Each structure stands twice: as structure tokens, then as C-alpha cells.
Simulated scan of single mutants.
Amino acid sequence: MTPTLGPEAATLHRAVSEVLHYVWDPIGVAGTPEARDEYEGYVDGVCGLLWHGADANAVTAHLVAIADDAMGVRGTQEQAARAAEILLAWRDVVTR
């Protein structure tokens, strides 16, 4: 059973899921309904980084490492950096 998230954590979790799918998207599946959950396995790890105060460089490095190591996709630095900036903006909104 998945524990219930508080409202702030649930909001951040949804935002991270959306950003990973529509912005980061290293394998190019955004817009494919059947692949909507493709990156869900990475959401909790990214949320953990955000809750623990990671900066844009740390989040970018984490996303690049996932793409490189888990997916074998290289050259994702730019989209990872864009996603990291958006994720930090979401964290700022959620934790106000």
C-alpha cells in the first residue's frame, strides 16, 4: 500500500511527474498516452532531492545520470537543465 501524501507532497509529486514526462522526456514519448507512466519510477527520487534542498545542478546531474545509466540515452543535459529549473520553481511554489 502506498502511504498517503500530504497536500504539499502530493502537489509536488504530480508536478514532478508532469515535468519528467513533458519537459525532460529523454526517450521522446511525451504526447503518447500509452507511455504516460514511463518515468514514474523516477518521480520519488526527484521529489526526495527537491525536498532535501537540491539545487538546479544536482537535479540536472541526477536526471542526466538516469538518462545515461538507466536508459542509455546521451546528450540530455539541456533538457535536464530545463526540467530542473521548472522543478525548482514548483518546489518554491509548493513550499511557500
Rank of each mutant, 00 (worst) to 15 (best):
H13S: 14
A15L: 13
A15G: 08
A15R: 15
V16C: 04
V16S: 05
V16A: 06
V16G: 02
V16H: 04
S17K: 14
S17L: 00
S17G: 15
E18S: 11
E18Y: 12
E18N: 10
V19Q: 05
V19H: 05
V19L: 08
V19K: 09
L20Q: 05
L20V: 03
H21L: 15
H21M: 10
H21R: 13
Y22Q: 09
Y22E: 11
V23L: 11
W24N: 00
W24H: 04
W24L: 01
W24M: 02
W24Y: 08
W24R: 07
W24C: 00
D25F: 02
I27D: 06
G28A: 03
G28I: 04
V29A: 04
V29Y: 05
A30E: 07
A30I: 03
A30K: 12
A30Q: 09
G31Q: 07
T32I: 14
T32Q: 13
T32G: 00
P33A: 12
E34T: 12
E34A: 15
A35N: 10
R36D: 12
R36Y: 13
R36F: 12
R36P: 00
D37A: 13
D37F: 09
D37V: 09
E38Y: 08
Y39P: 01
G41K: 12
G41M: 14
G41P: 04
G41Q: 13
Y42L: 12
Y42K: 08
Y42T: 07
V43L: 08
D44Y: 11
G45E: 14
G45D: 15
V46D: 00
V46L: 07
C47Y: 05
C47S: 05
C47W: 03
G48H: 07
G48P: 06
G48R: 13
G48T: 09
G48A: 11
L50N: 04
L50G: 02
W51K: 03
H52M: 08
H52N: 15
H52V: 00
G53E: 12
D55E: 11
D55V: 07
A56P: 01
A56Y: 04
A56M: 00
N57F: 00
N57R: 14
A58L: 14
A58T: 15
V59Q: 04
T60S: 06
T60I: 03
T60F: 01
A61Y: 07
A61K: 11
A61Q: 11
A61P: 03
A61M: 05
H62K: 14
H62L: 04
H62N: 11
L63T: 03
V64M: 01
V64D: 00
A65P: 00
I66E: 02
I66D: 00
I66T: 03
A67C: 01
A67H: 05
A67E: 02
A67M: 04
D68I: 05
D69E: 15
A70N: 13
A70C: 13
M71T: 06
M71R: 07
M71V: 02
M71P: 01
G72H: 09
G72I: 12
V73M: 10
R74V: 13
R74S: 13
